[in-house]
Design a protein around this nucleic acid. Structure first.
Lengths: 337, 337
DNA sequence: CTGTTAGCGCCTTCAC
DNA sequence: GTGAAGGCGCTAACAG
């Protein structure tokens, strides 16, 4: 294998003594005579020839890349989604282009514009916030897009989302079944898509069960540090017998704050998180968590996009993933596990 | 803004009544008369024109993409590195293509071959294992590559690595200073690059301090589950007064296993992790951890690659990042913090 | 300052 | 089954 620094169809063709068309055919597995195939393979191997992706893309109009836009590459729930999406699209022969959009909604708009440059064949995106303008940009995108989470009004796109209300119901039912009656809630910012949905779920779940006692504190964001502060604020107000948290990071924060205040988990206070990420297991006791189906959402989103790439005119599909509850030590005695 | 479904230089040029070259110039900010600039901008806006990335890449020979290959997208230390690399390369105008190579070393080889298709301008890679063949493939790559971690023998590449020996020394010194004398070690697989380096560091650190007592257990991999098992095995053998762990996940596992056995942390057993990832803070007590500079390594690697893309002939640079120790509750009493 | 033109490397009809 | 030729959309000489 010689220097692959260059080496194009032309060079391989010369070396093999055939036309560039024949080389192209052999490289793409199209029918060719034994003899030509042989010579081309040999020449290609000697030259270390590898077809150029860019040129191919320009010609065929596909990049074999899928873009993924998430707000925070570091958030465990996005990490899990990324891993799953990476798995699915890689298996289908696509590369994954990662766009960390950051918090600023303007980044999302920029991303959509730049997507029209055609560096990817499609986009999977999970917006934290959905401003008006996002909707119009989505509508004018020339590439297929799958949204994980709520759609902006008027956008008819393939979509996958969680059922936060059902998820909250699972958590509250579980806690009520343990005889808990003062169920507090640590949420993230309420002006985000998940924040709004989870608060909604909390209120509905309590209302449905006739529970009047409600206490809610909003953390500044969905991080552990913000959770520490929120939990401290919450416990200042009094001690509930259960705390539901809008994600697992907030739940671990609540657990640690409560423990440090001398409260026994789960005896004095039961704690339930959401998302059921890897870190729910790391806590001591491990944290009961509502799996809102992040992994399944990711997988479904990837499949929806792949399907649309194959059939651009297929009917729009909107999938709701049903939540499940994984019970661990933070909300129930060992012997009940 | 009209339908952007197509719209090329030609269309914009027609609409603006100028040549395609003029459009290209305006779009790239090259000098052009006021009048032409104006007309082109207007036409482009009306047509929703966005330059095609693929065609541009083919022409200029650059994709403005950087590939990142890591073994496990889910591992917290890689997540941190990803985030940092994403930040740096994005700011420099590059997109990040994520390649999760998996455990199989063959994946890495495949990746290097496919990289020669030219879908990215360079590669950052952090191999878990470094088989012979990887070296030869690295040498025959036509694109710049920066390796995070050990280099295969004979590869002269830009490189960033941690100083595991110094890191272990930090951990051991810290523990010895607390009067700990029976310092055990929970490692990951010893046939991986980090596993070998950390064992090496452990042995050297103990030897340098004349500590004879050594106990080591290797977890099956660097995950929490494997850590639980390894820690249990370790504690079966007897109770050390300190445990150093090859990463934070293993450390949390050790902490939880020890706690459940009724041991007090840090009084009975001190625990020190490595990598100083976000999760070190989540544990209760929080875990003292040796920061092997994952974030700095990532940032440095990204910068080295950007530099090489600018100056292909710059001298090879190999950087060693010095570790630091972040002391938390798992290895020292509150009052000493 | 602006327009014309020649490819970048590949795939794909179209004749042979 | 194989070769010749056109063009994907764009940039960079080179003329004018």
């Amino acid at each position: 294998m010689a220097d692959p620094r260059k080496s194009t169809l032309v060079l391989v063709a010369e070396r093999a003594g055939v036309s560039i068309a024949s080389v192209s055919r052999v490289m793409n597995g199209l029918p060719a005579s034994e003899r030509v195939t042989e010579r081309v393979r040999a020449a290609a191997a000697e030259l270390g020839y590898v077809p150029d992706a860019t040129a191919r893309s320009l010609k065929v109009g596909r990049t074999e890349q899928i873009a993924l836009a998430v707000a925070d590459v570091g958030n465990p729930v996005y990490v899990g989604m990324m891993r799953e999406i990476s798995r699915v699209v890689t298996k289908a022969g696509y590369r994954l282009v990662l766009s960390s959009t950051g918090i600023d909604p303007k980044d999302q708009i920029d991303l959509l514009v730049s997507l029209n440059r055609g560096y990817a064949d499609g986009l999977i995106m999970s917006p934290l916030r959905v401003p008006e303008e996002l909707g119009t940009q989505l509508r004018s995108s020339r590439l297929p897009i799958v949204i994980i989470g709520s759609l902006p009004p008027g956008a008819e796109l393939d979509n996958v989302r969680a059922d936060s209300v059902a998820g909250m119901a699972l958590a509250v039912d579980h806690l009520a079944a343990q005889g808990r009656t003062r169920i507090a809630f640590v949420n993230g910012p309420v002006d985000t898509v998940p924040g709004a949905a989870r608060r909604d779920g909390y209120l509905k779940a309590l209302a449905a069960r006739g529970i009047e006692d409600r206490t809610q504190v909003d953390a500044r964001d969905f991080t552990y540090q913000a959770g520490l502060k929120a939990a401290a604020t919450l416990l200042e107000k009094g001690t509930p017998d259960a705390i539901v948290c809008a994600n697992d990071l907030l739940a671990i924060a609540a657990l640690n704050v409560a423990t440090r205040r001398g409260l026994k988990i789960p005896d004095d206070v039961a704690i339930v998180g959401m998302d059921d990420t890897d870190i729910a297991d790391l806590a001591n006791p491990a944290i009961t968590s509502v799996d809102l189906g992040a992994t399944r959402r990711a997988r479904t989103a990837a499949r929806l996009l792949l399907r649309r790439l194959e059939k651009p005119d297929a009917p729009v599909r909107q999938v709701v993933i049903e939540p499940t509850l994984t019970v661990r030590g933070s909300s129930t005695k060992e012997e009940n596990l």
